[in-house]
């Protein structure tokens, strides 16, 4: 039984094909797995290992280094409240306190209905709009207690489904390189000459870098 759906398996092959070495596709493939299931299972890692030609242990090693990969199920909505400097100066601690009370879980916990996981996060690059948070990596700026309650109500009611996909899906637009336009990835050991435009400039007497 394969973990990836037929569609994701072909997406995985397309992604792998863009890199000079298969292993470079490992993090993107872990994202594809997480987008499919909401988290990264052992089964997924075993299959990624086969796809990028390495061992499951190597995949686990990479997977476990990165904060975004969850190796057990989390809520449909991962609510990351920024706790770093600019947000802290603007009341992030109070926002977290309110969020813990509203959702009835501590930071790191998941609500019993499986809808929300609340987490304390590091700087999210929205420092002028503090305090900020991300729901499945979609921003909400200058969030106060009322704004947080409204957000939770709307998410629970499904009113934001168009904007915020379930946990695991980050970008909904994917790169697609049309076959006729692609230069193609070549293993580095297969190349030992400068690219044509450099060679051409050199042979015209202009020299090259």
């Amino acid at each position: 039984m394969s973990f990836f759906t037929e569609e994701n398996r072909s997406l995985a092959r397309e992604i792998i094909g863009r890199y000079p070495r298969r292993r470079s596709a490992m993090i993107p493939l872990l994202h594809v797995a997480q987008a499919q299931a909401g988290w990264v299972s052992e089964e997924a890692m075993v299959e990624i290992a086969e796809l990028v030609d390495t061992t499951p242990a190597e995949v686990l090693g990479t997977c476990s280094f990165y904060e975004m990969f969850k190796r057990e199920p989390v809520g449909k909505y991962l609510v990351n409240i920024c706790a770093t400097m600019s947000c802290a100066l603007a009341g992030a601690a109070e926002l977290m306190e309110h969020a813990e009370e509203r959702l009835g879980v501590r930071a790191g916990g998941t609500t019993p209905d499986g809808l929300f996981t609340l987490a304390s996060a590091e700087c999210q690059a929205a420092c002028t709009e503090a305090p900020c948070l991300q729901v499945n990596y979609r921003y909400r700026y200058r969030v106060d207690a009322d704004g947080f309650d409204q957000l939770v109500d709307d998410l629970a009611a499904g009113a934001l489904d168009d904007e915020i996909p379930p946990h695991g899906v980050t970008a909904r637009v994917r790169q697609h390189i049309p076959a006729g336009r692609a230069v193609g990835a070549v293993p580095p050991e297969a190349v030992n000459e400068p690219p044509v435009w450099i060679a051409a400039a050199a042979s015209n007497g202009a020299g090259s870098a």
Binding site: R18, I27, H31, Y66, E67, M68, A182, V183, G184, V196
Partner: peptide
């Protein structure tokens, strides 16, 4: 022209 290059979008995972 003879200038050809692929740009591959790669994305990280939080570190």
């Amino acid at each position: 022209t003879d200038f050809s290059v692929d740009i591959v979008l790669h994305w990280g995972a939080g570190a």
